[in-house]
Computed example of a mutant assay.
Amino acid sequence: MYILRWKDNPSMPKGLVYEGVQTEPTEYSGTTAAQSSVLQCIDELLGVKHEEKSRAFLTCMKSYMPPAHRKLIQDISVQPSLRDFVQQQANEYLNKAFDVCVSKLLAFRSYHINVVSHFITVPAARARQLCKNSQDSEGEIVSRAPTSREERGTGGSGIMTFLKTVRDKTKDVFLPQTSK
């Protein structure tokens, strides 16, 4: 299993050749939660509408899913969302239950941002600073890796912008509060 990407990776502009298997370079995105059919199913079910750039990245990541998973997401996407159904019922208990589901997804996405910050963004900034302070030739070689990883996640997205945008679009599906 690969973690880092070699699609659109400045360190490997032509991709990666698997010697003894193929002669042409291959490009793959690294592992990312966006490849999870579970999260994309939940988004479709709840009616989360992502911005164009985020939606394009999520669509690209579907190519890494099993075909049956992609089909399930597609089947859910062509139906009315659970949000639409709940709104039509005009039931306060159902509205609250729906909003609890949205809040759990929102909490997961906020937690994910914290994990990425802790394990990717902060270490990349530290590595960049160490390399900046290093004057030897080894530091010059190492300095290229953090620079290429700094603004990109393992899947190749602009990591923090993408994660925050996805989280913020999740907030948009909370049901409007009715006043009595």
Rank of each mutant, 00 (worst) to 15 (best):
L58W: 06
V142Q: 08
V122Q: 11
P146V: 00
K96I: 15
K164E: 09
K169A: 10
Q79E: 12
D168K: 03
I76H: 02
D168V: 03
E52R: 15
S148I: 02
L175H: 00
V115F: 08
T154M: 12
Q74E: 13
T154F: 09
S63G: 14
T178D: 09
K132N: 08
I73L: 04
F108M: 03
A145L: 14
E52Y: 05
V100Q: 14
A90S: 12
Q88H: 08
Y64K: 02
T154G: 12
V166N: 04
T170H: 01
M160E: 10
L130R: 07
A127N: 13
I141A: 15
E52K: 15
R128M: 13
D75L: 01
V142R: 07
V173I: 10
T161P: 08
G139S: 06
H118G: 15
P67C: 04
A127P: 05
S157P: 03
Y64C: 04
A107T: 04
V100T: 13
V102G: 01
H69C: 09
P80V: 03
F162Q: 06
L105Y: 04
S103R: 07
R149S: 12
G153E: 01
F174Q: 02
C131S: 06
R70F: 06
P123G: 00
A56H: 13
G139T: 01
C60R: 14
A125T: 04
R144H: 09
S54I: 07
K169G: 10
A145Q: 14
I76Y: 03
F174N: 01
G158K: 08
L106W: 08
L58T: 02
T170W: 00
K171N: 13
S143H: 05
L58G: 10
E51D: 12
I159S: 11
K53D: 13
R83V: 06
L82N: 09
N114F: 07
T59C: 13
H112K: 00
P80K: 07
V102L: 05
V122M: 12
F108Y: 06
E150I: 04
R109Q: 11
N114C: 14
S110A: 15
C60S: 15
A127W: 05
H69I: 00
Q88P: 12
R144T: 09
Q79V: 08
D84C: 14
H69W: 05
H50L: 14
S148D: 10
R128T: 09
R126P: 05
M65L: 10
E140P: 01
V115G: 14
K62G: 14
D99N: 15
S137M: 14
Q87K: 12
S110I: 00
S137H: 11
I141Q: 11
R83L: 06
K71N: 14
R144E: 09
S110R: 10
S148C: 11
P176L: 12
D99M: 10
S117Q: 12
V100R: 12
S103W: 05
N133C: 06
S81G: 02
N91Y: 03
S143A: 08
E51T: 10
S81H: 00
Q74C: 11
M65G: 08
A125H: 07
V166P: 02
Q129L: 12
V142P: 02
E140V: 03
S103M: 08
A124M: 09
V102H: 01
A124T: 01
S134G: 15
P176D: 09
D84T: 15
C60V: 15
C101Y: 07
C131V: 01
F119Q: 02
N133T: 07
F119H: 03
R128D: 09
